[in-house]
């Protein structure tokens, strides 16, 4: 009944070996990650790509929620800037969140995440916008006075050149002093991805 070609890789996963070489994942992990990708990318339109609506749906279980950060993360994943994520973009970006990924990659990614206007530095107004968005997203309520004092303190510590902005070098020394700021850049789940998505073995090309 079937014309199964077991050696043919699924669409979007044509070259798992190259992706494995260029990320921290093994070939099996790339294949397992593809299972997650398939699930997310078929939620609204089964076209082999994750669009913003599907990304939001996977993150929040609703596509209605407005989130500055979900948008920002999506845009950073979308290295081809075409509004959709192919598997390769997804795998390369997620790789940065692996516990074994180099800390410099995490520092760079987090800096870009917070550099909303992509000017090469994080300015006070951007930090305020992000704090306000975080509070709104989590339903917390802080007075403007308290928000300003939190930002004052943060800049006192981070902005060592006293020019009102945080550049990459200042960001790096801040997060090295406070590693907890990079906590959300590491997903322990990625260590167990082959057991979370075991169905990749049905077409796997490798035994590792």
């Amino acid at each position: 009944c079937c014309d199964l070609d077991l050696h043919k890789q699924p669409k979007g996963l044509e070259d798992p070996e190259i992706l494995a070489r260029e990320t921290v994942f093994s070939v099996s992990e790339i294949e397992a990650l593809y299972e997650l990708f398939k699930k997310i990318s078929s939620a609204v339109v089964d076209d082999g790509f994750i669009n913003k609506e599907e990304f939001q749906l996977a993150l929040f279980k609703t596509s209605q929620k407005e989130s500055l950060f979900a948008d920002r993360v999506f845009d950073l994943f979308d290295t081809k800037h075409d509004g959709i994520l192919g598997f390769e973009e997804f795998a390369r970006a997620i790789s940065v969140f692996h516990p074994n990924a180099p800390i410099d990659d995490k520092i760079e990614f987090s800096f870009q995440l917070y550099d909303l206007k992509q000017q090469g530095f994080i300015e006070r107004q951007e930090v305020k916008q992000m704090v306000v968005a975080t509070l709104a997203e989590s339903g917390m309520n802080l007075s403007d006075e308290i928000i300003e004092s939190i930002i004052d303190k943060t800049f006192e510590e981070a902005d060592t050149k006293h020019d009102g902005k945080i550049d990459k070098e200042e960001w790096r020394s801040l997060v090295l002093r406070h590693p907890s700021l990079l906590k959300n850049m590491t997903l322990q789940y990625l260590k167990d991805i082959t057991t979370t998505f075991p169905s990749f073995v049905f077409y796997s090309q490798v035994d590792d």
């Binding site: 950060f69 997203e137 308290i146 939190i150 322990q188």
Partner: peptide, 25 residues
């Protein structure tokens, strides 16, 4: 006390930055 919290610590708790959700079945 929130007044001594680092702004980035606060920001990094945002739901939109918790990609772990993607891996929860």
């Amino acid at each position: 006390r929130p007044a001594v919290m680092n702004a980035f610590e606060l920001i990094s708790t945002s739901q939109g930055l918790n990609l772990g959700v993607l891996f929860e079945k």
